[in-house]
Design a protein around this nucleic acid. Structure first.
Lengths: 109, 109
DNA sequence: TAGACACGTTAGATTCTCCTCACGTATCAT
DNA sequence: ATGATACGTGAGGAGAATCTAACGTGTCTA
């Protein structure tokens, strides 16, 4: 039986699974960036970054704004919220996690 | 070049990337479970579940307790905390969620 | 002890993922 | 207009991830 639809990542969890994509998201947390600026610090080619961005855009984790020949990407926070809420469901973040939250912030300022 | 050491996923994000593993974690959020009970509702074979559990154990997301011929698995919440803290870093959790958290603590001291 | 049960593990095939290379399309500068 | 710049896309291949089937080990029950 052939694969039903198109293969590939289609949820936020899959997006977060790749270190390069996490790196890109971290960078975008500081605000809008151009592709070239995103691809600079990263260990793969600009083409690879472009493909990661396409994937992330299709999932809805980032959005694009065009300005001349440049494209600015920004975070789309709602999708990431799905991960937060999933974690809260299974981790009971509110009740057991709050004390650890303080520790995490001490450890990773 | 072949993979140096043990194969596969080695971080929490990778663990969360697979729907079956998330399903298992959701089930474990309710407390300790046996492998058979975990494998029941899931769409893959018990063998596949076993392999997922091994992976999750190696990452430290779950832990095992043996009792006779059965094995009970439980959540190891600290590892999942890494995802939480990562999300907070990039998503500015403080601004959207922390106020609600404060209200919650005021309401339930 | 014999057989059922609860699991783990390995092997092997199949499907995904991710990368680079090469090329195509706009847009800007001269 | 010409060339450089900023990106995207598609092909193709290497390697990773995942599944099932078959088998092995220890434990319980009759």
């Amino acid at each position: 039986m052939p694969a039903a639809g198109a293969p590939g990542i289609d949820d936020v969890f899959g997006v977060l699974a790749h270190p390069v994509r996490r790196q890109l998201l971290e960078r975008l947390a500081g605000g809008e960036r151009r592709v070239t600026d995103l691809a600079g610090p990263v260990a793969v080619s600009r083409s690879a970054v472009s493909q990661h961005l396409r994937l992330m855009r299709s999932v809805g984790v980032v959005a694009e704004r065009r300005a001349g020949r440049e494209r600015y990407y920004r975070l789309e926070r709602d999708r990431l919220g799905e991960v937060e809420s999933w974690l809260m469901r299974i981790d009971r973040f509110w009740e057991r996690g709050f004390r650890r939250l303080g520790e995490h912030l001490d450890a990773h300022p």
